[in-house]
């Protein structure tokens, strides 16, 4: 099997789910697919979904790597708020676009290193280690913004949130490029394999000569940097840093995206493409709920029902989506058939 077919087989359940969710939404909103060009920017529901999923997609990239090492990063939503606040503060202080990007990136880096050291060097459970920053970080962000929504006026910076590149929203470009870059980095080198090895058995990997401490810290740093990008986009989008609400609960959506992507929370094999599809599925549901016109009291219930259905269909015991052609009751009969080569 070629690499492309292997990948297609891996992400088939997510693709099928995405198509199913889109079909479901278009039942309520038939114009779903319509995309037009207005003022040199593409406008339409699919474009909205691709743009609005940017923060969760970026967080999911970092989260996939962390979860592959059998860890979890609960702090990403808060890191978004910190980095967004740092960026808005830098613009406010007159450091300009590049200064703001550098300072926000540095903030994400520091947060990642902090989490990484707690997990890799001090050996604290990842869920506890990152919980610290999740809780304390929002206070840090509020200190930066002085408790208010810190607004700024910089067209260059807001371009990152609401601008377009050849008609495509900039946030979309950012998350797709980041996904490709990280995907190539981990799959074209041995890095992905080493990360998976740590997740399967940390001790064995260390004994086999993998520098697991450095690699673990690097994974949390990657997550912090992804969160920094998400925070920059969220801040640029509303031209202001809202320390109380930026990235609030998004860590949970990111984890959900990774899980819908079929990645095991117990670490090991991972697929970034599948996580990104997970983020797209979540955003399609979110946007679909807004379009369907139900009273807002139903929003969370609808989302919960859809997520439960998706996860049940993907569960190991059912495996309906993993192998849609061979349903479980058929597999029993099919299994004893020897492969063609053996029969000859």
């Amino acid at each position: 099997m070629t690499a492309a077919r292997k990948l297609l087989r891996r992400i088939a359940p997510q693709l099928i789910t995405l198509v199913a969710v889109i079909l479901l939404v278009s039942l309520y909103y038939p114009d779903f697919y319509k995309v037009v060009l207005v003022n040199d920017r593409l406008v339409g529901i699919p474009i909205d979904v691709l743009k609005r999923c940017a923060p969760v997609a970026l967080l999911a990239i970092g989260m996939t790597l962390v979860i592959a090492t059998r860890g979890i990063d609960l702090s990403v939503g808060t890191v978004m708020a910190i980095c967004g606040a740092a960026a808005a503060w830098s613009i406010d202080q007159g450091y300009g676009l590049w200064g703001a990007l550098a300072i926000a990136g540095a903030a994400g880096l520091v947060c990642g290193v902090w989490n990484g050291i707690l997990v890799a060097v001090l050996g604290i459970q990842p869920i506890v280690a990152t919980l610290i920053l999740m809780v304390a970080g929002r206070g840090i962000a509020q200190l930066i913004t002085n408790g208010t929504i810190l607004t700024f006026d910089s067209d260059a910076f807001s371009y990152l949130g609401s601008g377009t590149l050849i008609g495509v929203p900039v946030p979309t470009v950012i998350w797709i490029l980041t996904g490709i870059a990280v995907g190539l980095l981990v799959r074209r080198t041995a890095l992905g394999l080493l990360i998976e090895a740590i997740g399967v058995n940390l001790r064995a990997s260390t004994l086999a000569g993998i520098n697991s401490k450095v690699l673990l810290i690097a994974v949390y740093v990657a997550s912090g940097l992804c969160a920094a990008m998400a925070g920059i986009i969220a801040t640029a989008d509303i031209r202001g840093a809202d320390a109380n609400n930026a990235g609030l609960w998004l860590e949970l959506d990111a984890i959900l995206a990774v899980v819908i992507g079929g990645n095991s929370p117990l670490g090991g094999r991972f697929s970034i493409v599948a996580s990104l599809l997970g983020a797209l599925i979540i955003q399609t549901i979110n946007t679909g709920i807004l379009l369907a016109g139900f009273p807002s009291e139903f929003n969370l219930v609808i989302k919960a029902v859809l997520v439960i259905v998706i996860l049940v269909l993907q569960s190991p015991r059912l495996m309906l989506l993993q192998d849609p052609v061979h349903l479980p009751f058929l597999r029993k009969r099919a299994a004893p058939t020897p492969p063609a080569e053996v029969r000859k």
Partner: peptide, 23 residues
């Protein structure tokens, strides 16, 4: 004609308004 929650925040206000405009 349309009524949805924006959670009192700027970001959600913008997101939901985008969907309203589309719809």
């Amino acid at each position: 004609v349309r009524s949805q929650t924006g959670d009192f925040t700027r970001a959600q206000g913008k997101t939901v308004m985008e969907a309203f405009l589309q719809a």
